[in-house]
Design a protein around this nucleic acid. Structure first.
Length: 257
DNA sequence: ATGGCCGAGGTACTCGGA
């Protein structure tokens, strides 16, 4: 079973790229972030025609997450992180597919830091910690996947020294990620590729992709049940070089069964 | 230190992104 994640940066503006990627790489499940579309503007027909059933949590202008599957419709469990009923951003959707609980998330960017946006990022992280702990306690196969907006270590940034004051790399944020993983999760990409320079995002500015000035901010966290089934993981880097690409590249894992 | 590039909304320019 192959599960992928892709921050599309606009699901409608990205539709040709998204459909081509789905066709060429054929993930069983695809988690999308940054739909940038209200619910009624989700391109359901095109997704259906591509062979996928989908659930989505959209919102006007910003954010938005979706789970696509071609091995049975995702059975939705929730469409927000618990802990703050006033949080109106569509940044989380959760479903089971083929016996796996999939949490598709889009963690807040947090810039500028310090400030209210950074506080929001940290509080969102706190809620994620609490929910992740509950999921682990259920002792079931879980993947928490998506755009975490965190480079966990210096290896995950092309030029660490220029990001030290950024909300994606500040010590509090790296620490929050580290504590989350320490609950008992496995960072799939890093576990299979230790010491390797791997990026999932390249800025639109300054020829970042051509210079390979990238960041690793899209992550798969696996519960112990899934860690045992992890066979391969990687980044569809070439997609970032396609015409009208997102600034992120898709990331995927291959599981046994 | 700054600005460079994008998508969306709405139809000029701002905002959010990372």
């Amino acid at each position: 079973m192959k599960i992928a994640t892709y921050n599309v940066n606009g699901v409608n503006g990205r539709l040709p790229v998204l459909l081509r990627w789905l066709k060429e790489t054929a993930p069983d499940v695809a988690c999308l972030q940054e739909l940038k579309a209200p619910p009624e503007k989700f391109p359901e027909q095109a997704i259906t025609d591509a062979g996928y059933e989908a659930i989505w949590h959209g919102q006007k202008s910003w954010t938005g997450v979706a789970i696509l599957s071609k091995i049975g419709k995702p059975q939705e469990l929730r469409r927000a992180l618990p802990g703050d009923p006033d949080d109106v951003n569509s940044r989380y959707i959760e479903a089971t597919v083929n016996g796996i609980l999939i949490g598709c998330l889009y963690l807040p960017n947090g810039n500028p830091a310090p400030g209210p946006k950074f506080d929001y990022k940290l509080s969102w992280f706190k809620r994620l910690h609490a929910h992740a702990k509950d999921l682990l306690a259920q002792d079931i196969p879980v993947v928490l996947v998506g755009d975490y907006n965190v480079m966990p270590t210096e290896l995950d940034v092309y030029k660490p020294e220029s990001w030290v004051n950024d909300a994606l790399f500040l010590p509090e944020v790296r620490d929050a990620f580290k504590k989350l993983v320490a609950q008992g999760w496995t960072d799939a990409i890093r576990t299979l590729h230790p010491g390797e320079k791997i990026y999932t995002f390249w800025d639109y500015f300054r020829q970042a992709y051509n210079r390979n000035a990238g960041l690793r901010i899209d992550h798969f966290l696996l519960s112990p049940h899934l860690e045992k089934r992890l066979k391969a993981a990687g980044v569809d880097k070439e997609v970032r070089g396609w015409e009208k690409s997102s600034d992120h590249a898709p990331v995927w894992i291959q599981l046994d069964k």
